[in-house]
Design a binder for these strands. Structure first.
Lengths: 224, 224
DNA sequence: TTGCCGGTCAAACGTATGTTTCAAACAGAC
DNA sequence: GTCTGTTTGAAACATACGTTTGACCGGCAA
């Protein structure tokens, strides 16, 4: 028991329920009854539902951003002077995510889904919170991407980063459902690591595609 | 005025509010006050909030799926016998979307965001509705994708389709905000058509990337 | 005119939400 | 053991939601 076992039980329950159903669709009563704590405990320990949402993110994101900074440090040290390649940068990110110590077997996939939801559900407070708490590793990642794709114009790079973000956030945000479908249709089991391993080459290839053509092809064409 | 101007006003308001804020986060009172109709009108004309959500999708999706079927017919006719290329298939889809008659200047981007939300917010009823109403054009698109990428294993293709879907839905769903950022940061104007023109090559390149490697690269590597 | 009927309206219904209250239980220090 | 500050507990609070109700309006057939 010790001090406040309650806090962690709430965070665990909230994390899972948010991932399953979204933020607005999860009530404090669901959380507290799953966590087997009193309803008032959330407001007592966190202050409000929004603050609880922030705490759920912070519990994962704070150690993660530290891990990520280290991974970037290592990467830049290894490359001494030379900017890291796109592939290296993307792998540094995904490896940091995958190697985070996991609280339970669902671990990373729950959190990926939460990150996806954070972008998708338009929860203004959450975006503000994430932006002002974790802007540093984010900017650093952006800088690395820029140095790894000097051939792209700023505008092209901007949009392609959005495409990457979208493919990632979307896939991860529904990865449980997608895994289930795959399991039923093709009888294949899939781990988050495998999804990431499939995603990175997809992203890298898209990022480095031939220059975008601004008009649809005449009528007969193919890609590289 | 004529018959039921009310129905369309509700649909217009609902479409915009859903796109801005999501489904659960939009109340019937917001919708009816924006549409300047009585609160009871929604339940009178549609039966329930869920049925209203379905109606919003049906208003766009029904004509769109007809347009899309025609585009696929044309494409397959032009290719007589040969399976259309990936690029051709993707262009057929985006052109059908872009060329849909638009109700207002926001038009397509609002709807893209709604489609993204439909996948992301776990609204079971919506997925069921979409699956059983529009399964035909969807399956056809999937078949074309399969024929255009015979080199991919079923599993690879499955995941890469999810990645494409994610990049598309996510980008389009926030394209207004993204356009604004771009406008402010780089002083560049962008249309939905241009975004699509940037997106298609990205997707095609990602779809046709070298086989996914299931282990991270040793430590020095680059892409093609 | 009369009678109807699709549509609108204000008001209320029942339920669920986030939050607050205040008394009781608890822990550790003196 | 007693006191003190922290944590829990059951209950209530105020508000917002989706939905339902029943009165009312306007046009049109009989």
């Amino acid at each position: 028991m010790a001090q406040s076992d309650t806090v962690d039980r709430i965070l665990d329950a909230a994390e899972e329920l948010f991932a399953d159903r979204g933020f607005s669709e999860t009530s404090l009563r669901m959380i507290t009854s799953k966590a087997k704590v009193n309803l008032a405990a959330v407001n007592y320990h966190f202050g409000s539902k929004n603050a609880l949402i922030h705490a759920v993110f912070a519990r994962f994101l704070t150690p993660f951003s530290a891990t990520l900074e280290n991974a970037f440090d290592d990467l830049e040290a290894r490359c001494d002077g030379e900017p890291p390649t796109l592939n290296q940068t993307l792998w540094a990110l995904t490896e940091s995510a995958v190697r985070m110590p996991q609280r339970n077997e669902k671990g990373i996939s729950i959190f990926m889904r939460l990150l996806g939801l954070a972008y998708t559900q338009s929860q203004g407070h959450l975006r503000k919170f994430l932006e002002q708490e974790y802007s540093q590793p984010f900017s650093r990642f952006m800088r690395l991407l820029k140095e790894a794709t000097p051939q792209l114009s700023s505008v092209d790079r901007y949009w392609r980063i959005q495409f990457m973000l979208g493919a990632t956030a979307f896939t991860m945000s529904s990865s449980d459902a997608l895994r289930d479908i795959l399991q039923n249709k093709l009888g294949v089991e899939t781990t988050v690591q495998e999804i990431a391993a499939r995603l990175v080459p997809f992203l890298a290839a898209g990022m480095q595609a031939e220059d975008a053509m601004l008009v649809p092809p005449s009528h007969k064409s193919s890609v590289a």
